[in-house]
Amino acid sequence: MFNALLHTHSGSWAIMVILFLITYFTKSQKITPMLQRLFYLIMIVTGVWMLSILHFPLTYVLKGVLAIVLIGVMEMLVARKRKGSPMPAMWIVLIILLAVIVMMGYGVISF
């Protein structure tokens, strides 16, 4: 069961990032932001489920909190793009958060 959750979780991360890039760099669409939010939910549900199986280790709880912050940053970037006021600093935050979260997920960063 855990392996199925892990593959679903990591796959939803990859699809979520691709959908974010499509949503950000294409003209106004309705379907890709909805799909992106669906994969947010899939990622959160599978992540919490795996946390409960592992009995909430601190490293992965922190990863989950950072992932929720990353989702907020993605949503802010898309909203700012639609309003016509992009924020380059938010891209830096997005890249750093994404790199840290992926490294924590694969065990490169641990404490």
Rank of each mutant, 00 (worst) to 15 (best):
I15W: 01
I15L: 15
I15Y: 02
M16T: 15
V17Q: 00
V17H: 03
V17R: 04
I18E: 00
I18S: 06
I18P: 02
L19E: 05
L19F: 14
F20H: 10
F20C: 11
I22V: 15
Y24N: 04
Y24P: 00
Y24K: 13
F25E: 01
F25Y: 14
F25I: 08
F25P: 01
T26M: 09
K27L: 09
S28I: 09
Q29I: 05
K30E: 03
K30Y: 02
K30N: 10
I31R: 10
I31M: 09
I31N: 03
I31C: 00
T32V: 14
P33K: 10
P33E: 05
M34W: 02
M34Q: 10
L35A: 15
L35M: 15
Q36A: 12
Q36E: 06
Q36N: 13
R37P: 00
L38R: 06
L38V: 15
F39M: 15
Y40R: 03
Y40H: 14
L41H: 02
I42Y: 03
M43P: 00
I44N: 02
G47N: 03
G47I: 06
V48T: 13
V48I: 15
W49M: 11
W49A: 15
W49F: 08
W49N: 06
W49Q: 10
M50Q: 04
L51H: 07
L51R: 07
L51Q: 09
I53D: 02
I53Q: 08
I53Y: 04
H55M: 06
F56C: 08
F56Y: 15
P57D: 05
P57Y: 02
L58P: 00
T59C: 00
T59L: 08
V61Y: 01
L62M: 12
L62R: 04
K63Y: 04
K63R: 11
K63E: 03
G64M: 08
L66I: 09
L66T: 07
L66A: 14
I68Q: 04
I68P: 01
I68A: 13
V69M: 09
V69Q: 01
V69W: 01
I71S: 07
V73N: 04
E75D: 14
E75Q: 13
E75A: 15
M76V: 13
M76R: 14
M76C: 11
V78Q: 07
A79N: 12
A79G: 03
R82M: 09
R82V: 11
G84R: 07
G84I: 11
G84P: 06
G84F: 11
S85C: 07
S85P: 00
S85G: 07
S85T: 15
S85Q: 13
P86C: 12
P86N: 06
M87I: 13
M87L: 14
M87G: 05
P88Y: 04
P88W: 06
A89T: 12
A89S: 14
M90T: 12
M90C: 10
W91H: 14
V93K: 02
L94P: 00
L94C: 05
I96A: 14
I96S: 04
I96H: 05
L97Y: 07
L98Q: 01
